[in-house]
Computed example of a mutant assay.
Amino acid sequence: MITLFLVVFLDLVGFGMIIPVFPFYAERLGVSPSSVIFFLGLYSAGQLVGAPLWGSLSDRVGRRPVLLLTLLANAASSWMLAHADTGAALAVSRLIAGLAAGNISAAYAYTTDITTDATRPRALGLLGSAFGMGFILGPAIGGLLAGGDDGSSLAQVAYAAAIMSLVAFVLTLVRLPESLPADKRRQRHAPRTRMAVYLQRPVLRGLLVATVVVVAAVSLMQSTLALFSAERLAMGPRSLGWVYGFTGVISVSVQVGIIGRLTTRFGARRLAWWGTILVAIGIAGVPLAHDLVSLLTTLSVFSIGSALFNPSMSGLVASSAASNERGGVLGAYQGAASLGRVIGPVIGSGVAKVVGLSGPFVAGALICLVGTAFIASRRRNAGAT
């Protein structure tokens, strides 16, 4: 589990390094501020296709080959980004990176392979903390490597991100054993289960729809935050890197320190519901921030909610699947999350054009609250799997 944690952590550090720099670099290449939000959504479009594909493939060939292939693809996409000199090149590099990032479904499936129902919440929390820690160090390192607040050194950041993915590849190759024995894999001739089949299961349907809705709200906020902070608080890549790092510290503290005990006491469904409420409150508070302290305060609420929501939802999804279909089911879950990340920036871009950069946060909070109804429906349908 520690090796998998390090693999995911290193890969997410590389991804996180790009976040605070990309919007500024894209603008330097002639991409308008409102279109930057859409460009960020292209990454999730690739993830939308990749997550179900890699998850299902890992049920057939094992988790390790999928992780190795996608880590190499991540490194290649970062190299392409370093050499991009047009908006079209940026778009292609982001799409490929998103396709490769679909490997997260295989990482989650790996975790469920090596855990029991009793140990799974804490293990998923640990895996989630790898994401959080990636967002602590990644944006901070990216901001520092950018060399200033104009995003002029993206190539340097992108090369460093490629190195992170290559290190994760070597670590997987040398230290990570296969978690899914051959006798537990889905037969190669069996047809791949489509998302529509999972949606026919009442429990999964509620969870997947809730994931789309909540993640759409979260990605809407995240894709707008850099531009809003630059306009309202005059923040650049380096400052934003530290802000993202701060939110990562909050998220990791919750997922490593208390998520297992909270799940045992309150249950994953209740934690997912309350996490959604806190995310909505945090998103709604961003446009009210008038200085760095107030921004960090509302982002703290958001980070706590996100840290409760993510491992709780993935645990609920995993518990609804058989061992030989968990890759596919978790791939569907990651695909639902990716769909939300596509929808969110599109909505944010449209709202920002009409009412300004404060509007997407209000819309995001309202959308997020819709997700609570679908999470609650999981309890009503618990016996209808």
Rank of each mutant, 00 (worst) to 15 (best):
T3K: 10
F9N: 12
I18G: 10
P20F: 06
F24Y: 14
E27G: 13
G30H: 04
L42M: 11
Y43A: 09
Y43W: 15
A45P: 09
G50F: 06
P52E: 00
L57A: 15
V61K: 06
P65I: 11
L68A: 06
A76L: 15
S77L: 01
L81V: 08
H83K: 11
I96V: 15
G98L: 01
L99C: 04
N103Y: 09
A106C: 04
A107E: 10
Y108C: 00
T116E: 08
R120Q: 13
P121N: 09
A123V: 06
L127Y: 11
G128H: 00
S129W: 03
L137N: 11
G138R: 02
G142V: 07
G143Y: 08
G143Q: 09
A146Q: 02
Q156R: 15
A161D: 02
A162F: 07
M164W: 00
F169E: 04
D183W: 09
R185H: 12
R186I: 07
R186H: 06
H189F: 04
Y198E: 12
L199P: 11
R201N: 10
P202T: 03
G206T: 09
V212K: 03
A216W: 12
V218D: 10
T224M: 00
T224D: 00
F228V: 03
F228S: 03
F228A: 11
S229W: 12
A230S: 14
R238V: 14
G241P: 12
Y244R: 14
T247A: 10
S253P: 07
I259H: 13
R265F: 02
R265P: 02
F266Q: 01
F266E: 00
F266P: 02
W273Q: 13
G275A: 15
G275V: 10
I277H: 07
A284G: 13
A284Y: 13
V293Q: 14
S294D: 07
T298C: 11
V301P: 10
S303E: 00
S303H: 00
S306W: 14
A307F: 08
F309L: 15
M313G: 01
S320Q: 15
A321N: 08
E325M: 14
G327L: 07
V329N: 05
L330I: 01
G331W: 11
S338L: 01
G340D: 11
V346M: 15
I347D: 03
A352I: 01
A352Q: 00
K353H: 07
G356A: 09
G356C: 09
S358M: 03
G359L: 13
A363K: 03
G364V: 01
L369N: 05
S377P: 06
S377F: 12
R378T: 13
R379K: 13
A384P: 06
A384M: 12
